[in-house]
Design a protein around this nucleic acid. Structure first.
Length: 287
DNA sequence: AGGCAGGTGGCCA
DNA sequence: TGGCCACCTGCC
């Protein structure tokens, strides 16, 4: 396939190599892969295909398939115009050494704005699975049910399309018990096409409550979909890594996930979700 | 070979 | 409300 020449992106905040890797392939998104030969990341979201390269001075370059050149929406997806430094400054790093350390390790780490519907789909796949497995499930879903964008590159299927598949078909893609939830959610969303965009426009608390009406969507998956797919930066997903971090590094040994979700939102504030991502990346890199 | 992994929902006290 | 367990599958 033909790709356009590399072009610099106008990044408000620079991003280091490690932070880029964490942003694209650290559990927010599941459709980026490292291209060793090209020394770049290649990813798909919505109906966009793109390559990203880490350049000197922590800048970024982008290249697109020539056939899709006009379709680039990388700015929104990567939130390149957002002043992340200003947001970080509002986190309690001054009084929180752990947070301070993880922020300095991942300079430029950011929260993506992925398409809401496919973020929900990816996280419905995520239950008790590790990142490589989730990526395989997403790839299988795209290959078998998703629309082809350019040769060999498939979008994730819409909920409408997914509702045409049977649970048995979905199970064959390695989804396991997640297939039932995905099928049932697809049937619901296909019946009310406006529902997701309505949810996306609600404030965090109401959006979460609405999302959790869907089968297979509990607190954690709802928080992930809202943080990574709807710009609700006050969402604070508690997974096993954050659980470990808060229990061991913050000394909250007897706290359960529900209590820690509350703690996170109180302690880290309006941008708790960004703090979560720093702690998450730090915890994983230290393990 | 058995336990566990970025959870959820149902059942029981 | 709070704790426990089954649920698919692949990987160590």
């Amino acid at each position: 396939m033909n790709w356009t020449p590399w072009q610099y992106l106008k990044l408000k905040c620079p991003i280091n190599r490690e932070a880029l890797k964490e942003t694209l392939d650290g559990g927010q998104a599941f459709r980026w892969k490292w291209m060793e030969e090209e020394d770049c990341w290649e990813g798909i979201w919505g109906t966009t295909v793109a390559r990203l390269k880490h350049a000197t001075d922590d800048r970024l370059q982008i290249s697109l398939p020539k056939a899709l050149e006009a379709k680039a929406e990388i700015g929104d997806y990567l939130k390149i115009g957002t002043d992340w430094q200003q947001i970080i400054d509002q986190l309690p790093w001054r009084s929180d050494e752990i947070l301070k350390t993880s922020i300095s390790a991942f300079q430029g780490l950011r929260i993506l704005k992925q398409p809401f519907g496919e973020t929900l789909l990816a996280f419905l796949c995520s239950a008790t699975k590790q990142i490589p497995q989730i990526k395989i499930m997403c790839e299988n879903l795209a290959q078998t049910h998703g629309e082809e964008i350019v040769e060999g590159y498939h979008a994730l299927p819409s909920w409408q399309r997914l509702s045409n598949a049977t649970e048995t078909e979905l199970r064959k893609l390695g989804l396991g018990f997640r297939a039932k939830n995905i099928k049932r959610t697809a049937d619901i969303l296909a019946d009310s096409p406006e529902r997701l965009s309505t949810i996306e426009s609600l404030p965090y608390a109401e959006a979460k409550e609405e999302l959790m009406q869907l089968p297979g969507v509990g607190e954690k998956i709802a928080d992930c979909a809202l943080l990574f797919g709807a710009e609700k930066l006050d969402a604070f997903p508690v997974d096993t890594w954050i659980l470990k971090s808060l229990q061991n590094r913050y000394g909250l040994h007897d706290w359960n996930a529900k209590q820690l979700t509350h703690f996170g939102r109180i302690h880290f504030g309006e941008y708790a979700g960004l703090a979560q991502q720093f702690l998450f990346s730090w915890e994983r890199s230290e393990s």
